[in-house]
Design a binder for these strands. Structure first.
Length: 444
RNA sequence: GGUUCCUUAGCCAAGCUGGUAAGGCAAUAGACUGCAACUCUGUGAUCGCCGGUUCGAGUCCGGCAGGAACCUCCA
């Protein structure tokens, strides 16, 4: 597996820290609202990455969190006169519903901030004790200048950042770049600490959860949207550097944004479409197919036209697969276990090449073409049909595209026989009747 | 202004360590078919612009133009 590492700006050969095992963390949602379709991209991208690793025999430990403590959540709770937990539970469920529909596998662990609070407080304490953080009136800030490597993820140098940094109204900070680890607060849910009551800053949560859930301060892969590189991921690393002097993760992976008319879809811009709505309109399979049709690091423009084209592509693949099932059924044969190892290997090689899904799709179309070719000959060889159909299944499995084997009932077979008989007798009226019946069963 | 990245046929989109451009959609010409659908076969680009390195560059270097993300919460 070769992966583009945002930390080094290069494609590198992946070597796991522990033989045969992959530790992977992806920043999860802040659960104050339904996710939009842009938020669904990392779900699909990293689930697919996990499937590739698993296809290669790795044991993958994939962790993703729920940020269930946040200003927006508190604000919403306040406005709706509801407890925070009610809101977070609602949107965690909505998020998981989207994940399941998208056929994303279950995660190794899904920590919540509220359940990690003791560790977060301890960690902040440790940062203060070591001089990397300081407390002012109940707030705690991270002292960015105390970490020499600051900028290693976003590739910015501190001077440039300081020039560009907006003058913060918060004059408590020593430097405008310093970020909050703990916010003193009197509104909403809060925790008591020795420096005051409040809640943690966003950047601290992820580092702590990684360390806690994996039991170490260095993992294989940390993923997320490219918009999280700075400041979020930079600040995560800074904290880890401060205490452990590691880059937290060997590989930093970032997926590209989903655009609307060339502009990033975002909640703040308001140009977003909710994932659940897109799933209802196009169906989860098509969404997954579209998401993987472009390389994960590239921007992906979101439009009806993209979906229309993708639908034709996916239909082509699934139609071929369905035909294989039906033809085998009519021959009283079944799909076996043999597959074209060479085609499958080529497919996996593309997936291993920094998840080159466009090239992997090309292999799929090649497989589909071969399947169609063996389906079209006069004397169909069931072994050949099965071979390519099973090859296709294995590829779809890696991509997370669902398929289902179609068992033909005796009734179905009789109907096919009648249809053929009517055609042979040139009784097309009757033939169309049977065809319509088969069509209703989704067999034509 | 700084950082990172993108610009390939009508559209979408690959192209790693340089040797004359994957795949898909659309279009078009055939084949198959009772009709239709499906399918199969054939047909298209010199790679934003300029310059450099090289025997040779889409692929490396420099410059220019256009676009995006980040520098503020955001996948």
């Amino acid at each position: 597996m070769r992966l583009y590492n945002s930390r080094t700006l290069k494609v590198e050969e992946f070597k796991p820290l522990v033989e045969g095992e992959v530790s992977m963390y992806v920043c999860g949602p802040t659960v104050y609202n339904h996710i939009h379709i842009g938020n669904a991209r990392p779900i699909i991208v990293f689930d697919t990455l996990r499937r590739v690793f698993e296809a290669e025999g790795y044991n993958v430990k994939y962790v993703s969190n729920y940020t269930d403590v946040d200003d927006k959540i508190i604000k919403k709770a306040h406005e709706e006169h509801r407890p925070e937990v009610e809101i977070t539970q609602e949107y965690i469920q909505a998020y998981n519903d989207v994940r399941h529909k998208l056929n994303a596998h279950d995660l190794y662990k899904t920590p919540k901030v509220t359940e990690t609070m003791d560790d977060i407080i301890d960690f902040i304490d440790e940062l203060i004790e070591s001089g990397h953080a300081y407390e002012v009136d109940g707030d705690v800030f991270f002292r960015v200048n105390s970490v020499k490597t600051y900028g290693e993820i976003s590739h910015q140098n501190i001077e440039d950042l300081q020039v560009g940094a907006r003058i913060d109204e918060n004059e408590k900070k020593e430097s405008p770049l310093d970020f909050a680890l703990w916010k003193n607060t009197d509104m909403g849910i809060k925790w008591k600490t020795k420096w005051g009551e409040g809640r943690p800053g966003w950047h601290t949560e992820c580092v702590v959860m990684i360390q806690k859930e994996f039991g170490k301060n260095m993992i294989d892969i940390h993923g997320g949207g490219t918009d999280l590189r700075f400041p979020h991921h930079e600040n995560e690393v800074a904290q880890c550097r401060a205490i452990h002097d590691t880059s937290l993760a060997n590989f930093w992976l970032h997926n590209g944004m989903i655009n609307i008319d060339g502009i990033k879809m975002s909640k703040s811009l308001g140009n977003f479409t909710l994932a659940k709505d897109v799933l209802n309109i196009y169906g989860p399979q098509l969404v997954r197919w579209v998401m993987l049709s472009a390389h994960y690091r590239m921007e992906l423009n979101f439009s009806d036209e993209v979906f229309e084209t993708a639908k034709k592509e996916l239909d082509k693949v699934m139609t071929s697969y369905k035909q294989a099932n039906i033809k085998l059924g009519l021959m009283n044969e079944k799909l076996g276990v043999e597959f074209d190892t060479q085609l499958y290997r080529e497919f996996l090689d593309q997936m291993n090449d920094d998840m080159n899904t466009p090239n992997a799709y090309a292999i799929i179309f090649e497989t589909v073409k071969k399947l169609n070719q063996v389906l079209r000959v006069k004397e169909i060889d069931p072994n050949e049909v099965s071979k390519y159909a099973v090859t296709l299944e294995k590829m779809l499995e890696v991509l997370g595209i669902e398929y289902s084997r179609i068992p033909l009932t005796d009734d179905d077979k009789i109907l096919f026989a009648k249809w053929n008989e009517a055609k042979a007798e040139k009784n097309y009226e009757l033939a169309d009747t049977y065809r319509n019946q088969l069509s209703e069963r989704g067999l034509v």
